[in-house]
Design a protein around this nucleic acid. Structure first.
Lengths: 236, 236
DNA sequence: TCATCACGTGAACCTGGTTCATAATGGTGC
DNA sequence: GCACCATTATGAACCAGGTTCACGTGATGA
């Protein structure tokens, strides 16, 4: 009697339908105009049915973010397993991150919104921890790269712990993207090549950590070639 | 006939009352529960009066952010005028930023929320540009420090423009704080001393840029002493 | 075939932001 | 002083949109 199981499958499929449709609506009309009733209608279901899956609108948004975050983390894990030096892999994480948010323009904005106190605190504990759980394996994987580097003497941790060490590149990348994202904050700065800035400063930070082999950031051609190679070998 | 002017003064005073009370309410009960009607009532005015000042709730939030940003920028400008080397001043900006957001815990969260597409796009153009305008002088001041450093040969811009150069330290600082802020994102990382991480990575980035004089980040005592001196001389 | 039950439904509900007809205030000219 | 008018304050009504729940429907199983 697989009727119970079929039910669960159908339920899961419907949740996917809701999420995919929500994503489409957001892409087409913006986060601003997403409405629960309209989403349900767009999927040919009643509003109440939508609420059997998501306790609130905030829950839906967190679920949406979690779904993409899963892909994001998978990409990161793939990068950490790349057969290359630790320095190259650390930099590849930045390239991958930039690539991912370029491929999914609404994702970064959604994340930014979801981590807002107003949304995060309103979502259910369950959905929040579902999102947090996605991060565990990727943090472990990146920590692994850092530890490898330390063990190989390719970087001196100094007074920093493994986690603190990985926080630096993460912060550069996240901070840069967040600044770029904020309309009105950086328009006036008129940065021509925001992507290049991310790459250069990531390399600068790794250089600053003394992470071998040191990269010559004044060599723009080499930087471009490296980014291209990473995108071709890892991301395409 | 100063009756017109008096009106304007009173109007401005009332706006301040609204903003200050909103700030208090947010501090006491959270951004989540701020309600326009309750705010008006708390100031002994009717709801409609509040709407003579702010076109919408989002407008109020942007105004609130702008008010604090003004102080924030003033602090930054003070730092850029500090009689010290360019390297020390760049680092002092990080210390000042961290200090400011520690002193105003709700400010960072408010900013994060305000720069969200949902809020930013809903606020009036006027309020948005009022906020953006606050940044202009501070960007100019920091650019000045960068240019001074370049002129003095204390840093090689390489392929980076002045603005791109200043973006790096900004991103480290902003990114680090943003990551720390996000509950659930970094709890699991169990970083003991988040502040120290910010300082170390700022210095690491400046070292990576070859910004003279290079700082020995493994010397924790020197770092602590420097931070303390900056806080004492500039911020207290 | 019928009783039961789980699930879908969408109109009604409720919260809270926004508006606007009305009242109050205070300045101006006689 | 007083009458008039312009300006501003008021808060009840309005409205949008998230959430709920009493009801209907179709499947399940005896």
């Amino acid at each position: 009697m697989g009727t119970q199981e079929r039910r669960q499958r159908e339920f899961a499929a419907r949740e996917l339908l809701f999420l995919d449709t929500a994503r489409r609506l957001i892409r087409e009309e913006g986060l601003l105009t997403l409405q629960m009733a309209r989403l349900a209608r767009a999927c040919d279901y009643a509003t109440g049915t939508l609420y059997q899956h998501f306790a609130s609108k905030e829950d839906l948004l967190v679920a949406l973010a979690t779904q993409r975050l899963k892909e994001h983390c998978a990409l990161f894990c793939k990068v950490t397993a790349w057969p290359a030096g630790t320095r190259e892999r650390m930099f590849a994480l930045t390239v991958a991150d930039e690539y991912f948010s370029r491929r999914h323009p609404t994702y970064t904005r959604l994340m930014q919104y979801v981590f807002t106190e107003v949304v995060w605190e309103t979502a259910s504990e369950q959905r929040r921890s579902a999102l947090s759980d996605e991060l565990k394996p990727v943090v472990a994987a990146i920590s692994g790269v850092v530890e490898q580097a330390v063990a190989a003497g390719e970087v001196q941790p100094g007074i920093l712990s493994t986690h603190e060490l990985m926080l630096g590149p993460w912060a550069v990348c996240h901070g840069m993207q967040s600044l770029m994202q904020s309309r009105g904050l950086l328009n006036q700065l008129s940065i021509d090549a925001p992507r290049r800035s991310i790459y250069v400063h990531s390399q600068v930070l790794l250089n600053g950590l003394g992470w071998h082999p040191v990269f010559d950031v004044s060599d723009q051609a080499a930087l471009n070639a490296l980014v291209e190679r990473i995108e071709k070998e890892l991301l395409a």
